[in-house]
Structures are given as structure tokens and as C-alpha cells.
Design a binder for these strands. Structure first.
Length: 498
RNA sequence: GGGCCCGUAGCUCAGCUGGAUAGAGCAGUGGACUUUUAAUCCAUUGGUCCAGGGUUCGAAUCCCUGCGGGCCUACCA
């Protein structure tokens, strides 16, 4: 961002001068209210409903309001395009249709101003729905010009830091965030209709658990204690299942102290659901139904274009075990590399890098990320993960090295994660202890022992299926945006230094 | 974190093998035009060429450092 040049101040001074001129004429440039009878869409509908050959909604007077986004001065007639929440509407102002002086005062109207006009809906010679104005009012004077009318605002940083400019200039941005809002409310409707209870749990926590990630740390002055911003919703939601809430969900912001990237923003919106008496297979059926239903409601289709791919979210989604996927995409048979040492040697032979502290499970994860994940373009449930990677998931009957877990992949990246929850408090304690051992070995993302959570499940937790999904990533697919920053209104940026 | 690229008017961009007063379109200002819609036409204002150093007779242009951004890449959803 640069220092304001002289010209910005000159442009602003011109607008301030117009402000004064309006006041001199007894006009309040910031009136407290505006009488709007019709939106842009409503006027368009009126005009389109006119019978063939009739160009004017005779006897009807409408009032519209919006931001001036274009202006075409024709001498004794001027066209002004207004943008409101429903779209654009054209206003035609003619000298002989306005009160004395009102036409001349249009010179005090600039692009970016909020402007109201009353008149008759007409169809122009070219068929454009238009309000033929008999009066106009200033609703709010803008002191800065809006972005360039044809190219709009292209600079990605400006678009994100000053999203209001992006929204006023780019229809695509308005569409993306409208979809975002509707997807979130659609998810709530879907879950509410299935008897889920929406709850809120603490953002400030004494220990941040439930996921493998570094937390943000903050200080609580009143107690003179450290607090951590949550990195997942899981451990509190399970406490509620212990308490007898059989179906709960939370849709909220979580925070991970990590880098920025195409798929990463340090704060993002997570959905987690917990359902007593369900297992991960039942959760998978719910997830594919939820995502396809919400896509259908918001987009009108389950088919999305994403990074050049055509993705169909309609169920059933493909199901494949992690073992089979590695055989398919990596020609790697985990049964032949059942020890940490043999698998490490094989991956090293293939040229994959991994940290020294990586156990067998972490190595499997590395292989999966490298060979399998990029290939999972169509929605896919990858099933049955190594127990080492899943300290909160229940073991698979008959195979204690695996847990009942899936990750959902769409468009080549992970969009969701679910498991049959571990409700055996003795096994859970042992898993936490193993995590502590990993932490000691250098894995600073390993889970911390959470005695309060253990105490909760020691009181008995029913068999439960749990699920988590990054809403932002889902929205990337649904809106066709290739970076997470384009689906977050105000993504994180380095601070601006003056 | 590593590699590559970018930063010029309020906005979108040219100019960059060093050469004199830095350009265009849009926006603004003045003028013509009563159905235009990226309106058109005539005239015109506007620049710490990201910042700071350096090389040079001369730097928007070359070099270094910093700041900001983009793409690729490694790790976290």
C-alpha cells in the first residue's frame, strides 16, 4: 500500500466541494432514511411483465435506491446505472421531466454515490428495463471513486484487504460469498432436520486438542494464565455426547498456527458432528447426502467445475480402503512393509522425504499424501487408517493396527475426516500416552494428555460416529475457486507497515 | 522455509537491450449531444515510476538490501 498521492486528495476535494454545494442547496447528502418501493430486480420484473408493444408501466410510480455504478450523460438526458442488493437497474433522467434545477444538480452526483430515484418503469428503445425518473435524491455521497468500471479491481491483495471494493466491482465475488452463506445455512437446515442440536464450545482453552496442529497462544489477564485458541471442536463435543446430547454439531472458527497457502488460512471454519449409535459407515452416508443436498439447493446441481475438473457430488461416493488405494496409486503393498523400518526404507528408496520421528503411521500418511491424495478428484472416502495417526478413533475389530476412520477427498484434497469414536477410556489413556511419547521424540503436533476429557469418557460414552469438515475447502469446490482466500471474506495478511 | 516472477496516475495496463519534458484507456475537470448501456466526440488536470542504497555524464530501466504481492514447492484440514 502506498502513501496517498496528491491526486487522491484532489479527487476527494472535488467530492467534498460537491458535498458543500449540496448543503448550500439545502440538500442533506446523508439523509437518515430512504423510501424504496422496488428493488432493481422488482422493477425488471415489472417491465418484463409488460404486454407486447407496451413500453411503459402507466400509472405506476416506483422508487429505487442503490450505488451509482455507471453514468452516461447525453446532454439533456442522462442515464445512471444503480446497483442494489438484487442487481443493476438503469435510471433515465431527462431535463424536461424533472423539477427546476434538478437536472443541473446531477453534476453533483458521482460514481460511487448512493442515489435514489422515483419514476415510471419503462422499456427503452433497446429493451432495457429502466426507471424514467421524475425526481432524484442523494442518499449518501461517496468521497472516493469506485474501482475502474470495465476491468474492475484485479489486484488480489487489494481485493482481499478491502473486500468492499471487490464486492462492489466484481459480480463473481458477490456470487461466491452469497453461495457461502447459503451453503452454511443449508448445512444447518440439513442437520437440524435430522435432530442435531447446534452447540457452542469454548474458543479459549487450557489445552488445544483434537487435532494435530500447533495452536495460537494468548494470555488471560484476570487469571494471569495462558490460553490456547482451539484447533478443533472434537473434545468438547464428545463431552456433550457423554452428557446425553445424542446428536450435536458445531459450526465455528478454529485456529491453527501455521502457514498461508492455496488451501491454508490460519483461521478457518470447521463443521463437526457427533451422532450417538452411529458408526463411521453411517456417517459416510450422511456426509455424501448432506454435501450433495446442499450443493443441489445452492447451485441447482451436484456438478461443479473445479481446477479444470468436472466433479459430481451425487451419492454414492467412491469408497476405497487406504491399503487398496496405496496398491492402486503407488503400487505399494503395506502388508509387505509392516514395520516402521521396512516402510521407511522403501519410501526412502522411492525418494520421499519424511521426518526422523515419523512412525509407521506417519509414513503411511506421507505415502498417501504423495501418491493417493492428488488422484482423488471425484468425491472419495478413504477408509481404515493406521491407529498411530488416529489417537481418538476406535480400533477396527479383528485388526488392532487399524481404526474405523475415513477421510473424504474432493478435487484432490482432504475435505472431511470421520471416525467411529474411541469410547474405551482405558485405550484412550494408552493412546494419549503414546502421543506423549511421540511428542517427546520431536513431533510437536502430537496430542496432549487431556485428563478432563478422559474423566468425561470414564463416565461412559455411547458408541458414536463423529465427523469434521473444513467448510472453506468445501466452498472452494462448490464455487470453483482455486484458492482458499477467495472463499474467505477477509483472509489473513501480513500487517501493513507505514 | 526454498525456487521463479511482479510492484509505473485513483483503477486497468504499456514503456524496462540505460538517453533528454514517463504514456494509453477508464475515472476526474470543461464543452457538444433528450433512448444510452465499456455511449460517442473535442479539450484538459493528474505521477516520490514500492522504499532505501549503489553503478553511471545520465536510472522507471542495471546491481544490492528491505517491504508488499503472485506462481511453483515442502509441512499442517
Amino acid at each position: 500500500m502506498h502513501v496517498r498521492g496528491v491526486t487522491v486528495e484532489e479527487l476527494m476535494a472535488q467530492r467534498l466541494a460537491k458535498l458543500d454545494q449540496l448543503r448550500e442547496r439545502g440538500v442533506d447528502p446523508y439523509p437518515p432514511r430512504a423510501a424504496r418501493s422496488h428493488t432493481a430486480a422488482a422493477v425488471t420484473a415489472v417491465v418484463e411483465a409488460l404486454p407486447e408493444g407496451q413500453a411503459e408501466a402507466e400509472g405506476l410510480t416506483v422508487s429505487v435506491a442503490g450505488r451509482v455504478v455507471a453514468r452516461r450523460d447525453m446532454g439533456k438526458a442522462t442515464f445512471v446505472d444503480l446497483l442494489d442488493g438484487t442487481g443493476r437497474i438503469q435510471v433515465l433522467l431527462r431535463q424536461n421531466q424533472l423539477a427546476q434545477g434538478q437536472y443541473e444538480d446531477l453534476r453533483l452526483v458521482d460514481l460511487g454515490d448512493f442515489f435514489g430515484a422515483s419514476g415510471v418503469p419503462i422499456r427503452t428503445r433497446t429493451g432495457q428495463p429502466t426507471v424514467a425518473a421524475t425526481s432524484w435524491t442523494m442518499l449518501a455521497k461517496a468521497l472516493h471513486a469506485p474501482p475502474e468500471k470495465y476491468h474492475g479491481l484485479a489486484d488480489a491483495e487489494l481485493r482481499q484487504r478491502r473486500r468492499y471494493l471487490d464486492l462492489m466491482a466484481n459480480e463473481e465475488t458477490r456470487r461466491t460469498f452469497t453461495i457461502r452463506s447459503r451453503v452454511v445455512s443449508g448445512i444447518r437446515r440439513f442437520l437440524d432436520a435430522r435432530g442435531f442440536l447446534e452447540v457452542e464450545t469454548p474458543v479459549l482453552q487450557e489445552a488445544a486438542g483434537g487435532a494435530a496442529a500447533r495452536p495460537f497462544i494468548t494470555h488471560y489477564n484476570a487469571l494471569d494464565e495462558e490460553r490456547f485458541l482451539r484447533i478443533s471442536l472434537e473434545l468438547h463435543l464428545k463431552r456433550l455426547v457423554v452428557g446425553g446430547f445424542e446428536r450435536v454439531y458445531e459450526l465455528g472458527r478454529i485456529f491453527r498456527n501455521e502457514g498461508l497457502g492455496m488451501k491454508y488460512n490460519p483461521e478457518f471454519t470447521m463443521l463437526e458432528t457427533y451422532e450417538a449409535y452411529a458408526d463411521y459407515q453411517g456417517v459416510a452416508r450422511m456426509v455424501e447426502e448432506m454435501v450433495s443436498t446442499v450443493a443441489g439447493e445452492t447451485l441447482g446441481t451436484t456438478v461443479c467445475g473445479f481446477r479444470g475438473h468436472r466433479i459430481d457430488l451425487a451419492p454414492p461416493w467412491r469408497r476405497v480402503t487406504l491399503h487398496d488405494a496405496l496398491r492402486e496409486y503407488a503400487q505399494l503393498d503395506l502388508d509387505q512393509f509392516a514395520t516402521r523400518e521396512s516402510l521407511a526404507a522403501e519410501l526412502a528408496r522411492r525418494g520421499l522425504a519424511f521426518p526422523d520421528y515419523a512412525g509407521w503411521g506417519k509414513l503411511v500418511d506421507e505415502a498417501m499424501s504423495h501418491y493417493v491424495e492428488p488422484n482423488l478428484i471425484q468425491p472419495t472416502f478413504l477408509l481404515d487408517y493406521p491407529v498411530e495417526l488416529s489417537p481418538l478413533a476406535k480400533r477396527k475389530p479383528g485388526n488392532p493396527r487399524l481404526v474405523e476412520r475415513f477421510e473424504a477427498f474432493i478435487g484432490g484434497f482432504e475435505a472431511g475426516n470421520a471416525y467411529t469414536e474411541l469410547n474405551d477410556p482405558v485405550d484412550q489413556r494408552a493412546r494419549f500416552e503414546e502421543q506423549l511419547r511421540l511428542r517427546g521424540a520431536g513431533d510437536d503436533e502430537a496430542e496432549l494428555m487431556d485428563e478432563d476429557f478422559l474423566l468425561a469418557i470414564e463416565h461412559g460414552m455411547p458408541p458414536t460416529g463423529g465427523f469434521g469438515m473444513g467448510i472453506d475447502r468445501l466452498l472452494m469446490v462448490l464455487t470453483g475457486q482455486s484458492t482458499i482466500r477467495e472463499v474467505i471474506l477477509f483472509p489473513q495478511h501480513k500487517s501493513v507497515k507505514e
